[in-house]
Nucleic acid binder design. Structure first.
Lengths: 332, 332
DNA sequence: GAAACGATTGCACACGCTTGCAAAGGCGTG
DNA sequence: CACGCCTTTGCAAGCGTGTGCAATCGTTTC
């Protein structure tokens, strides 16, 4: 392995004819350096291709500038857009994202958190899974910040960002009811995530409140393929639903495709659909899906400002997912 | 800001009743420690919640374990799946991905590379844009590895991974010709990336070879929305194409939706379409798009094994994108 | 029993940086 | 000119780790 040779502050100092401290101060925000020395240092640094070693800097300061993003299935549209938003916000807060890919197991999330500790990350943001308390305790005790997005379990000292899933589900029911639907169903995955369950329960609850039965099916992961299967199951029931609220836009797309191509149903006249997330594809004219928009940018902004600024007392933020009316429900 | 307090090797050493070196050696691959001390060190480390400080380790070793991923528009399906594959492969090679979000400008890619240098990344993988030679030179001179995916320009010492775009485009032409198409078009974006241009030129060239004119339109970014516009332009020409090869699956989806919903064309009987990338949505039954599959996993594997292992002489790898037959071309 | 050998272990230095502290220099005021 | 104040600068300690070197210890061989 070829040795790595980076230019150090010492070399810059020698070339600029100043002390090493002067170089360090030149690149430290708010340190005391004269115009003249700064100029000479910058010049020498430029010429030599010097860059402050953030590893060494992180050793002295109590900030490494690293924030660890922990997520599974990062190629999923919603997940990907959240990651994009997070990295953007982190970068404008002069932080850098470290991305850890987990499978869905809580064990692997634990491993990811250990990695975050090893790199002395300033914070970890968890998008999937929920690690054991023993590990989150180490994080928090070490002074590492922790942000949980759409997780349910509580951790003292962590910031929890959640959506109004339950309310949204109830609004979905009302919207479908007003559209004249009579037979309701909820298409869920088997990944019984807190937020997915909140949507399911909110929808059922709304059904009960209006004295209507809600059919529920659960299958697989929250993917397009699961949507195909779920549609198959729901639409072959003896009382076929004319309204399906899907846990997810991906599922909704699957359901819609199966309903149209396999069952030859027209949407929205014979079947109304509502999804959740407002992924890119929901806008595509083949789907034109009515759905709830995840406030992705707001989530990212909230997370980043919290972990970048002084520790406010706020421990939990609830953001709202707004209903986006499109063509998959009658009479928007 | 609350101070961060991590437990250090010294504390572990004290608790285990050994020297600090013993602790260090316990966590160093292939160092000389007796069974007994190792056991006591591990036990103490476990009890205290000790994790080796990778920042400090990176200071001593010439490997930080960090690999910098540089990309724009990371929420795009193809990009997202590549990032997922890369992080997975990196992790199984005990490396960690640092994700930098750039806009398309080469300037911002340069900034990203500076960041990679600052964090003493072992390597950088560039998925979008092309930084100035002055910066890549610093990287390479420092001994940092550089992988360019689907970039064209050459950099001595960097690994370039490319696809057979030109050949693929010619195969696309043949496939369309055999399907009985007579009027050919290429739908491109204005992002004149090397690989996109290679597809365009390959397609035109195949046309020339068969004595057929190829209509070309370019618009916007490589997005679904651009596809809508491109379809609008191409399908209102006086000699309407009955075969469109799209630079991208996203564009292809846009073109298909516009063709169907706005121009009421049937696919593939009235219009044949081929895309590129084989994104998730290409499989969706609304699109069922014939396309070329990016060998995402192979790309990632190639990149990671190169940068993780000893410097082989190979400087350039050309991988093949296979044609995936689906329903958007007649007679697959 | 002495010598030779290999496995462990501790010491101390190095990595590249930040920062408290004190010394040095510049400048206005009395 | 003496004094005090403020800005700038260098020194040196320290951050948490890896590792060469020499010392120690236990074991084997003659």
């Amino acid at each position: 392995m070829s040795r790595k040779i980076f230019v150090s502050a010492k070399e810059v100092a020698e070339r600029a004819g100043v002390s090493r401290s002067a170089v360090s101060r030149t690149f430290t925000q708010g340190a005391s350096v004269s115009q003249e020395t700064r100029r000479r240092v910058i010049e020498a640094a430029e010429a030599l291709g010097y860059h402050v070693n953030h590893l060494a800097r992180g050793l002295m300061r109590d900030e490494s500038g690293i924030v660890c993003l922990i997520a599974a299935e990062l190629d999923t549209p919603y997940r990907a857009s959240l990651i994009r938003a997070l990295t953007r916000h982190l970068q404008s807060a002069s932080k850098i994202a470290m991305l850890v890919n987990t499978d869905r197991s809580d064990e692997s999330v634990g491993q990811a958190l250990r990695l975050a500790i090893s790199y002395r990350a300033d914070a970890s943001i968890i998008l999937s899974g929920m690690p054991a308390r023993s590990i989150t305790d180490i994080c928090l005790k070490s002074g590492q910040r922790l942000v949980l997005i759409n997780r349910d379990e509580e951790r003292d000292g962590a910031l929890m960002i959640n959506l109004n899933d339950r309310d949204a589900a109830q609004r979905a029911f009302l919207a479908l009811l007003r559209a004249g639907c009579r037979s309701f169903a909820f298409a869920n995955s088997e990944a019984l995530t807190p937020s997915l369950m909140a949507r399911e329960e909110g929808f059922r609850e709304a059904g009960r409140k209006h004295g209507m039965e809600v059919a529920v099916e659960r299958f697989g992961a929250t993917t397009y393929e699961s949507g195909l299967v779920l549609a198959q199951r729901l639409l072959t029931r003896e009382s076929r639903p004319d309204a399906i609220f899907c846990a997810n836009d991906l599922i909704a797309c699957g359901v819609m495709d199966a309903a149209r191509h396999q069952f030859k149903l027209d949407i929205p006249s014979q079947l109304c659909l509502i999804g959740f997330d407002d992924i890119e594809q929901a806008k595509w004219s083949s789907y034109n899906l009515t759905t709830f928009a995840q406030p992705v940018d707001e989530i990212a902004a909230e997370a980043v400002t919290w972990l970048a600024h002084a520790p406010s007392q706020v421990r939990s933020r609830k953001l709202v997912a707004e209903l986006v009316w499109r063509g998959s429900v009658r009479g928007g």
